[in-house]
């Protein structure tokens, strides 16, 4: 069983270059409320898909509001495959 860590998710956010201070992000708060707009969010999901080899359908996006939720989602996807 693979487990993607929160730090790995943070690394992807850094790579996506969508926020000035990645370390200041709170994992249980909405990314939108922390200043990440719709374009940045699309870029983040694209990088998540690319790095972890998962597909995130549009219908799942509404449940991916926080870093914690993204981490859980990616782990569930990877371990399902």
């Amino acid at each position: 069983m693979t487990n993607i860590t929160q730090e790995q998710i943070m690394d992807v956010i850094r790579k996506a270059n969508i926020v000035k201070d990645t370390d200041a992000l709170e994992s249980d708060k909405s990314l939108t409320d922390q200043g990440i707009d719709s374009l940045d969010f699309s870029s983040l999901l694209f990088n998540i898909e690319e790095v972890f080899g998962v597909e995130i359908p549009d219908e799942d996006i509404d449940e991916l509001l926080t870093i914690d939720q993204i981490q859980s989602y990616v782990n569930a996807k990877i371990n399902k495959n």
Binding site: S43, L45, F46
Partner: peptide, 12 residues
């Protein structure tokens, strides 16, 4: 336009 899909296509 599905903005996310077009972004993904372009970026990839």
């Amino acid at each position: 336009m599905n903005g996310r899909a077009v972004f993904n296509f372009t970026a990839a």
